[in-house]
Amino acid sequence: MGSSDPLAARAAELHTRALEADALAARYRSERDALIWRLRADEPGRWSYTALARALGCSRELIAQIVRRAQ
């Protein structure tokens, strides 16, 4: 479905790109979460919430949310 209006066509293009970016971001988050769960499972003493947060550059709260989702 196209539009002869250039602004509407540009908005439609950006909408499509935003949907694609959301899907890519979801895949990245899923892979990140799996790696965090693996690190915690393999070496729980080394990979505390604080250690993971520092390594990833995020908050302990985010790590806690990710870890809780696995349980």
Results as ranks from 00 to 15, higher is better:
Glu13Pro: 00
Asp5Asn: 11
Met1Ser: 13
Gly57Lys: 09
Cys58Ala: 00
Asp42Gly: 07
Asp22Val: 11
Glu20Tyr: 03
Gln65Tyr: 00
Cys58Val: 15
Ala9Leu: 10
Val67Asn: 05
Asp5Lys: 06
Ser59Trp: 02
Arg46Thr: 10
Ala55Lys: 05
Leu56Tyr: 07
Ala9Asp: 15
Ala64Pro: 02
Gly57Trp: 10
His15Val: 03
Ser30Gly: 14
Gln71His: 12
Pro44Arg: 02
Arg38Ala: 14
Arg60Lys: 10
Gln65Leu: 11
Gly45Ala: 04
Ile36Trp: 06
Arg17Ser: 07
Ala8Glu: 14
Thr50Trp: 03
Met1Pro: 07
Ala51Phe: 05
Ser48Gly: 01
Ser48Leu: 03
Arg27Phe: 07
Thr16Lys: 14
Asp42Val: 15
Ala18Pro: 04
Ser30Lys: 07
Ala53Ser: 03
Ala12Glu: 15
Ser3Leu: 06
Arg38Gln: 13
Gly2Trp: 10
Leu62Asn: 06
Arg10Ser: 09
Leu62His: 05
Val67Ile: 10
His15Thr: 08
Ala23Phe: 04
Trp37Gly: 01
Leu39Trp: 15
Leu14Trp: 12
Tyr28Leu: 14
Ile63Ala: 01
Arg38Lys: 15
Val67Lys: 00
Ala55Glu: 04
Ala64Ile: 02
Leu19Lys: 09
Ala21Ser: 07
Ala9Glu: 15
Ile63Asp: 03
Arg40Pro: 02
Glu20Ile: 08
Ser59Ala: 04
Ile63Thr: 10
Leu7Val: 15
Ala34Gln: 07
Ala25Ser: 14
Arg27Tyr: 04
Thr50Gly: 01
Gly2Asp: 10
Trp47Phe: 15
Leu52His: 02
Asp5Ser: 00
Tyr28Val: 13
